[in-house]
Every structure is written in C-alpha cells, then in structure tokens.
Design a protein around this nucleic acid. Structure first.
Lengths: 214, 214, 214, 214
DNA sequence: ACGTACGGGACCCCCCGTTAAT
DNA sequence: ATTAACGGGGGGTCCCGTACGT
C-alpha cells in the first residue's frame, strides 16, 4: 500500500503532462529551447526523466506541445475581444489591443513562446517552424477578418490591404516584445501598440470616437 | 617531415579571427547560440579547437564579438543612407528603407544577428543583452535624429514623438524578420517596410515634392 | 538484438558504486587525485562515463567518498587491536602496531589514501582537507585513549602528554609511508614502527612483564 | 630600439630561469604537480609559454629542477647547523632542530617540495622518485653522521642504529609537515620535533645539560 | 631570449534517451 | 505511471608542446 502510494505520485496523467508543459514553457521562455534540458523540466515538474519520456517521446515533442499549448492559450485570450460578433469591428480591435496591453503588465517579462521558438528554430526544425507559422496565422487571420469587416461597415481614408496590415500588426507585436526584452522596457510595447492603434484608426475616414459621438 | 607537414595556418591572426567571427555569425544565425558548437565554428573557419581559445577566451566571447561585428556592419550599411548630411531627412529615411529592402533580397534568409541573440539570451546573459540593446539603440537614434530634423524642416500632420516612432520602426524591422522567417516570406518584410514608409510620410503634412519646390 | 545486446550492467547500484570507489582508491593511490581521470575510473569499474555521474556528482565527490571509505576501512582494521576493552592498554597498542606492520607486508606498496589526498589537496580543497583531518583524528584519538588509560594503570618513567605522543605516532606513520615510497623500502616502515614501539614503552617505568606479575 | 628593448625583457637567462623555478615551487607546493599548469608558471614569472620551453624542455623538467633547487636550498639551510665540525654533535643536532623549528615559523604553511613531489609522483615517475630519494638521503646522511660521531664521543644509554634513527627522524619531519598541513597546526610540528629531540637525547647516557653543567 | 599562433588531444561534465523493474 | 541505473556521445575548456618570427 504505502509502497504503491509512494511510487505513483499522481495517477493523473493529464495533470502530470500539463505540469511538464508548463515547466517547458517557463524554462524555454527564459533560456530558449536548446539551453533548456530535459532534467530541468523534470525538476520543475517534480518528476524524473524516465517518467518524462513516458509522456513525451522526445525533447522536441514537448517543445511542440509547449508552443501548441501556448498558441491555444493565446487564442483563448484574444477570443474575449471578439466574443460579441455583432460588436463594432474597431471596438473589437481596440479590445484586442487592450488585452495585449494587459499582457504586458504581468510580473514576468512579456515574451511570446511562439516568437521565441520561431526565432531559434525556424531554420533548423521545419515542424516547429510550421507550427509557429500556423499559430501566428490564426491570430493574424482574426485581425484580418476584423479589418475586412470594418472596411465593409465604414468609409476608409485610403484603400489598404487587410492582410498586409494584419501581418504588419503581428510583426509589430512580436518585434515589440523582442526589442522590449533587451531594453527591459515593457512600456515600449504599450507605446508601440498605441501607435498601432492610432495607425489603424487612421485608415478609416471617421475616427471611432466621432462616429460613436455622432 | 610528416610532422612538419601539418603546418600551422597562415600566421594571420586577424584573418583567422575574422574567419571565426564570420563562421560564428553564419552558424548562430542559422541555429542560434546554444545549438552552435565551438567545433562547428572551428570547422567552418578551418581551425582546430585547440587554437580557438587562443583567439577567444570562451564561446560567449566569440558570441559577443560576433554581435558587435554585426552591429558595426549594420552601422556601416545604414551609414550610406545619411552620408549626405544636407539631404532631405525624409529622403534619407527613404534611402534607409531601400537599404533594408535591399537586405531582404540577398540569397540568405533575412535575419538579424542582434535580434537572434537578443531573443535567445536576453534573460540569461546580461552582457549580451546590453550589447544588443546598445546596437539597437545606435540604429534607432539615427532614425530619431532624422525624424527630429524632418520635424524642424517640415510641417507635420499631427504631433508625434520621434523617439517613440523610432522604436516602433525598429520593432517593425525586427518583428518583420522574425515573422518572415517562419512564414518563409521575405516579401512580407518589404510589405511591412512599405507600410512603415507610408506611415512615416503620413506624419508630415506636405508631400516630399513640395520640398523640392521650396 | 544487437541493440539490446549491449545491456546495462548488473542493476546493482551499490556494487557499482563500490566498484567505482575501489577503482578511485587504486588509481588515486597510484597517480594522485589530479592525474586520475574519470575515464580511468570508469574503465576500471567497467562502466561508461555517462553512467559515472549518476553515482557521483563530480570527480571531487568520488574523491571524498574514496577517502571516507578508506577512513572507515582503517577504523575497522585498527578496531581489532582494541576489541577487548579489558586488555592491557600497552598490549592493545602493540597489537595496533602489529596490524600496521602487517599492512606493510601486502603486495601493493604501503600507502595511505588519507595521506595522499592530504598532501595533494589540503591547500586547495578545504572540504577534502577537513575530511582528511577528521580521519587522522579518529585514529589518533584511539591511540590517545590508550595512552591515557596506560598512564592510569602504570607507573610512568617521566610525565608526557598522551595527545602529543599520539600525534607524533600518527606523524611517524604517515611520514614513514611517504619516505618508504620513494626509497622503495617497506622495511623502513617496520623499522620506524619498532622504534616507535620501544619509545612508547620507554615512557612507562615498569616493563610489561611486571603488569602480568601484579 | 624601443622594439627590441620591449621584446627581450631581461636578457638575463639565469634570472629568468630562476624566476620560473621559483614560480614552479610556489605553485606546486600549493596545488601539487599535476594541477599546476605551464601557463600558471609563466604567468607567475611574467613571461609567455614560448619562452618557457626555451628554458625547460617539458613540464617534467621544471618539476625536476624545482625539487633539485629545493634540495639544494635545504642543504644550504641545514649546513648552518654543522658549520663548525668541532662542535659537539648533539649541539649540532639541536641547532638543526632549531633551524627546522624556525622553518615552521614562516608565514607560508610549512611544506616540503620533496615530500610533495614524492607523495604525488613516486609511483609514476621513476626519475622524480629517485631525485626525491636522493635529497632525502643527503639530509638523513648528515644526521646519521652526527649520530655516529655522538656515539663515538658519548656514552649511550642503550645501543641504537644511527641509520635507523636518522630515517626515523626524517620520517617524523616529513610526516609532521603532512599532518600539520591538514590540521592547520604548525604547532604540532614543533611539538613533534621537541619530542624527537628528547628522544635522541635519551639515547645517550648523560643528558646534555648535565654534561655541560658538570 | 622571447612572443604569438597554432595543433592535437583529453578532461570534466552533462545531455538525451533506453531499459528493466516496481 | 513512475523510478533508478545506465549508455553513448559530445560540449566547452584547457593543457602541453611546437613552429616560427623577431
């Protein structure tokens, strides 16, 4: 009894797996993929290496799982912005920016797992590269959809390509986190997001505040 | 004879050192810092590992030297844009964007050593982080100077902070390279840079043609 | 098959660990600490280097374990001399000297692991130094206890300090092994021990034969 | 001019050689032979490795030179004790012990280069072993000569072998330095030497103080 | 006499993954 | 599901020694 009890810590494979993924995210966000060792992840999750390879066939596998979990988390996070499909597209866009800004206020430095893995592994690990591309696309497509919808509903100041603007916004977001990390200036991320907000609004003829006021 | 056959290299320490740095840049741009081994760099430079540590005291040292060399290279590259101090600031800005666009047309994927090292090491290597921050600042400051000068010479559409815009542009540049890498879409970098160009121009009331008129 | 052929060892961690310690003792006694490599110890123990660090966190750790094992072995060896607490202290002392003399008759050169590590590492490795000091103290204290007891039971020729004499004896023992090693003269150790025996006896007024008379 | 001046630091090959030997002694006394690197010795002596191998063909060569220099130094030191060949042998012996005791009072820990190298290298380096044996013999023979002379001049309490006692004394001296190093107790060396003094005096019928008094 | 560039090698450490057992 | 023991195989570092200028 006591022996078997001691031996099997949880018997909750899902929880154990999630703990490993969380450990992978923490460590890889901090150190990158290559510098993070399986032993470190095991230590963080409180188990041993033999157990690790029961849940993940390789280090690469947990890396993939960690980015995928991160992508899903991001999708859930942003989903709050467009939970109301009838809301004004620009309002939804603003809510999304606010969510991003909120993300920068956390204690940990504002880093994106997808951006980390993309930068480090894109040229050497095609699977990881494509996974990162997919996660970035999901978010970008949401923005593009918003912009298309806004174009339909509003007058535009000058024509623009929603897809191009969507990718620009994603690039700004990723680049801001990167640059802010070395500068240790989370405030710069907010600054960049606000400039992006103004930019997007400027694409449309009437500013939103005026529109709602009118 | 057979012993003396395995002669030393060229007795050109500077060339050897430069070869090592070039190898470090090539490999680290491709694989990242941690995944790049000293053996790989030596093989690329045609040197033995025993000799490596005569030129660099550690792997970290060559990493630093490689980013610093990259930073200097970038500074030289951009310097062409503002070689003529009397030129119109916005023209200089456009030339700089053209240089960047030209950079994306090379055969190798468009990656920045500073951005790579920053992403991977900012949180674990303070020295590298600060070096990267310095290199980013140098370039940003050049842009900021241009914007300040442009503000003085031209009418502006709406007030803006040159510093904030400068960092936004740098974030766009870094983020574009990051995102383009996973998407394998160098065209997206050009798209983003063109949008940035339009954005900056839009900050000023008068078009550039007026300047020539004045 | 061919893969499973290279099976793991015996799955006897204790035996493996002991084999490693024995290998460490053999090699370090022969070559010293610094000149002994982890590879050599693994080869002697029939283990691979990769496995070594599962049992010992570092080379220093196995060095410590090896001296501690040596110290324990010595304590067991000497314990035979004072197994009978009622025996005459000088008889016990003589038995101890006989045990030492027996130690010099083995095939291997008569060397003490504690003395080896002490000489080489005392000034650069405080942990090892203190461990060696402890092992030396244990043995010295046993001798000191004997001398104190002998003083109580016998008349002394002239007053002496048991502690000082105890450390002198230990110094003779260690110094004899050292000098005998370079002279390749184990006989000298015996000679020194016999002189030490006579010296200790001379500290007491009555010969041992009187004791049996009393 | 200035170039050649800078290039050849001393043009005093003997001084440079001596500086290297002194560095070797300092470092090897501290760390042992194997742990001392050629680079360390060069740094201590203020020159570079290329120059080192001009003076010594190998690391082993400087090791030998260092022990030989140490042996010669010891011989000079002890020679003060028997500078007057007509003096009483036991007085010369006492002076020698006083010189040894003086040696323990220095700031550095009391260590003997010969004992260090002997302990570490006796079983792996026959040349070094024999060199150490020679240096130990030289000193022992001086003591033996003293004891033989004393036996001729004085009445002895009981017969003894000068050679055996000479080697015992040397063993005490070496063992005391070894044990004192780990115990960080230079006082123990003095204690041991004083006990040795008393022991040697006890070999002769009349104590010296009485003899001079009478 | 002395310095610099370099070669070859190996040392300690550790890393990813597997196997057998519980 | 979880663990400990273990295997290969580098990774970074450094070490001793040499060749070759000056």
């Amino acid at each position: 009894m006591s022996k078997t009890a001691k031996r099997q810590r949880l018997r909750q494979p899902v929880a154990t797996r999630d703990a490993l993924i969380a450990a992978a995210q923490r460590l890889m966000l901090q150190q990158g993929y290559a510098a993070t060792t399986v032993d470190q992840m095991c230590a963080e999750a409180g188990l041993t290496k033999g157990s690790f390879f029961h849940h993940f066939v390789s280090k690469e596998a947990i890396g993939r799982a960690a980015v995928d979990a991160w992508g899903a988390m991001g999708t859930r996070l942003y989903a709050q912005a467009w939970s109301d499909p009838d809301a004004d597209p620009l309002d939804q866009f603003d809510r999304m920016l606010d969510i991003m800004i909120g993300f920068t206020k956390r204690e940990e430095p504002c880093i994106c797992m997808v951006g980390m893995m993309a930068q480090e592994l894109a040229l050497t690990n095609a699977g990881m590269r494509d996974a990162c591309a997919d996660h970035l696309s999901v978010w970008t497509q949401s923005v593009v959809r918003l912009l298309i919808e806004a174009k339909r509903r509003r007058r535009i100041a000058a024509d623009f390509s929603p897809a191009r603007v969507g990718w620009l916004l994603n690039s700004i977001w990723q680049g801001s986190m990167l640059v802010a990390k070395v500068r240790r200036s989370p405030a710069m991320i907010v600054s960049n997001l606000e400039l992006a907000r103004t930019y997007v609004h400027s694409l449309f003829a009437a500013t939103r505040t005026r529109k709602t006021a009118s």
